[in-house]
Design a protein around this nucleic acid. Sequence first.
DNA 1: CTCTGCGTGGACCTTATAGTCCAATTTAGC
DNA 2: GCTAAATTGGACTATAAGGTCCACGCAGAG
Lengths: 211, 211
Amino acid sequence: MTRPGSATVAPPRQLTARGLATRARIVDAAADLMYVKGVNATTLDDVRAASSTSKSQLYQHFADKDELVRAVVARRAGQILEREQGYLQRLRSFRGLERWRDALVQRNALQNGAYGCALGSMASELSDQDDEARQTLAEAFAEWTGLIAAGLRRMQDAGSLSDTADPDKLAVGLMAALQGGYLLAETQHDITPMETALDMALDHIRSFLTK
Amino acid sequence: MTRPGSATVAPPRQLTARGLATRARIVDAAADLMYVKGVNATTLDDVRAASSTSKSQLYQHFADKDELVRAVVARRAGQILEREQGYLQRLRSFRGLERWRDALVQRNALQNGAYGCALGSMASELSDQDDEARQTLAEAFAEWTGLIAAGLRRMQDAGSLSDTADPDKLAVGLMAALQGGYLLAETQHDITPMETALDMALDHIRSFLTK
DNA sequence: CTCTGCGTGGACCTTATAGTCCAATTTAGC
DNA sequence: GCTAAATTGGACTATAAGGTCCACGCAGAG
């Protein structure tokens, strides 16, 4: 850190391909562990073991655990948004919304509701502990909700959704139903409440269909 | 623990009023700390300091931290259900549902959404770590949802809610909207999404009103 | 081929935290 | 009051976890 000659402080010193690969391996392993065990309950030793790295490599890439956590948050946000973009960017019909719902429910059914939403569980655990993580998560939720709202707007443009509907509010409501559904499913170890919650939100949106 | 003559193992040895008061002080302090800092981030030393007790007293009343956590979960569940009973047991009209919504939103606005729902945040943190806590939380959610469903049924009996409405499903959907709203509000430090989510759920229920 | 510096392994240190123990004190029945 | 049990205070231990350090390895530029 006090080595002169290199960059001034400790900004992203230039990484080789190998370094980048190690870093990715660490973040991936940490993301998996933190999803299953929770952020706090995941130790750096867990991460080290799961990623087949050593302590020095962790601290080569991250100043401390908080920074690793933030990298995990960013990574998860990126992953989920990319996945959701795949589902939502072509959304143009209510049927598409139903398919989206089915995909989420099915994915969650694989683990019987356990662990909840990767974004939601981190949001709950970190929002009041790490403001930077909180902001990243808030932005991720906003983008995710935005994808839904955009889809609803396309439905309006296509004439299938009434102009009296407010896509932004409907999207927020749908996202809340999704997150609440995840939480209840996680607690009950049963995805039924998640289905019920999403169905109710979709029923409500259905009431705005024009045909 | 190996003291002969008293009860066989270590069942709730008989407590005096003083002991009971100490125990309550510990659980209360722990509940507050865990709500604000999270369960994992709350140390027994924090609890000890906040409750003005000593280590031996903690271990007098709880075998280990997990047991304290379970006591906190049970306590919170009891508190919230008691509070919600006050609001919901006389619920007979849609207006009453709106008042209930307003009360929850207002309470959450006091802290700008921070910390979320006391039950929800514990559910998220504990569901995949402590199965006993998870079950208690699941039952608490079920009871809470049941209070809402019972209110909706009274509305049906009074003729203001259509018989085609399914009170149980609507209650689950409303609870999910509430919990999802809490989570989004906590993440954004802004209660707007909570309001939006609850409004959407209420709008949907409104569509089943008969007059 | 060899020199430079990023990249790596893992021992080591420090602190914080869960959990133990026992002597001293208070309480409650007799 | 007296005695036994309940209660309390706080020092003490063990360990797990975060974080530091340094010697060595390796890969690419000259």
